[in-house]
Simulated scan of single mutants.
Amino acid sequence: MSNENGIISLIRLSLKKNIKQYTMFIALIGLMIIFTILTGGTFIMPRNLSNLFIQTSYIAILACGVVLVIVAGHIDLSIGSVVGFLGAIAATLQVNLHYGTLVTILITLFVGLLIGLWQGYWVAYRNVPAFIVTLAGMMIFKGALLGVTNGATIAPLDDSFKALGQGYIPNIGSLNIGSLSINMTTVIIGIIAIIIYNALELKKRGERKRYDFETLPKNLQMVKMIVVSLAIAIFFGIMASYKGVPYSIVFVLIVGILYTFITKNTTFGRHVYAIGGNKEASRLSGINIKQRNLLIFASMGILSALGAIIFTARLNAASASAGAGLELEVIASAIIGGTSTMGGEGTIVGAIIGALVMATLNNGMSLMNVGPTWQYIVKGLILLLAVWVDISTKKKN
């Protein structure tokens, strides 16, 4: 009986701990079903879903970085201007200076790191609130963007650079089933992803049992693994029935896995959550808060550069208006995905789900010919609802 109570308590704890991510995942599925019905099936077509995932990619990458910023109790209002500026740097290197793709990427990432260190320095070592620092950064880099572009569009970019935002992993062969052509490279990647996921789950379960931690019953563990494996199979199945896996999605997967590991399995990640949960207690426990804050904004700078590269490659151009309002989409994605506005709480997976929710709303309403007026209103209301749920949950706890 006590064993059953322990299992029930474990399940309840898991649900309570991840309730926001589960809720948003269910909401995402619900939105997809609604838009599929309202668009007569157009939304669920592989071509549209592939474009949807590509549209999500740079938002998801930026949201991964902003999770750390918000969890630590800060905010970054400069994301849109920084992405626009870094995209203009990349386009200038490609079009005007004729630099190769690899050199362009490395220089853009380095400039992004410098921007992150610059803003982090003012927050960490000069005690200027992040709100003010990044608000100033929004204006500074918006001006820098206008200076680099001279108000004109810089295009076109090299095909190899453009592929980062528009291209797909090469196909080794196709399997034709009636009129449907299946991308075998994507099928193989999907199978590998399922194998890796299940191997990691079994490894994690074995480690928990070895240290006498509570684990899910075998039946529930099996159900969980089957459901997640099925979700992975559906995702790669959709990709395989169109052109395959876009390079931009590969970047999202790499960033998502890396930052999930950082937040869950490193000292730095634990310190970030500790700082956001209780800054004074973190200071008394010996955490170097200044250094951690500097690294958080340096991380945001690098991901801003990566997001800018994919964003610019997708558009095949840089313009004076690039990145306008992007910070709102990114911050909303993180918050909708469960990152608490009060700090100390948030996940990378949740932020990626939040980015998918935002992209689904944009894509679905566009297919329905809903004007920008109502699109902004709907997204604003959803953000307001997400913050209200967060605050209400905190008060109950």
Rank of each mutant, 00 (worst) to 15 (best):
N3G: 14
G6T: 10
L10G: 04
S14T: 15
L15A: 14
N18Y: 12
K20Y: 11
F25N: 03
L28C: 09
G30P: 01
F35Y: 12
T36F: 03
T39M: 10
Y58M: 08
I59S: 00
I59A: 01
A63G: 06
V67L: 00
V69T: 08
D76A: 05
S81I: 01
S81A: 10
T104K: 03
L106P: 07
V111C: 07
L113S: 01
G116W: 04
W122I: 09
A124C: 12
N127L: 14
V128P: 03
A130T: 01
A136T: 06
F141S: 05
F141V: 02
L145F: 03
L146W: 08
T153E: 14
S160L: 03
F161M: 05
P170V: 14
G173M: 11
L180C: 09
N183D: 13
T186C: 13
V187Y: 05
I189G: 02
G190H: 11
I196Y: 14
Y197R: 05
Y197H: 08
N198E: 10
K203D: 10
G206C: 03
E207A: 11
E207T: 07
K209R: 15
L220C: 06
P246S: 10
I257N: 12
T260A: 07
F261C: 07
H271D: 12
Y273G: 02
I275Q: 03
L284A: 12
S285H: 15
I287N: 03
N288P: 07
L294A: 09
A298Y: 03
A298C: 08
I302H: 00
T339A: 04
T341W: 06
E345W: 11
A351M: 06
I353R: 03
G354P: 02
M358I: 14
G364W: 04
L367G: 10
Y376N: 15
I382R: 07
L383M: 07
L384Q: 09
A386Q: 03
D390S: 11
T393F: 08
K396F: 06
N397S: 13
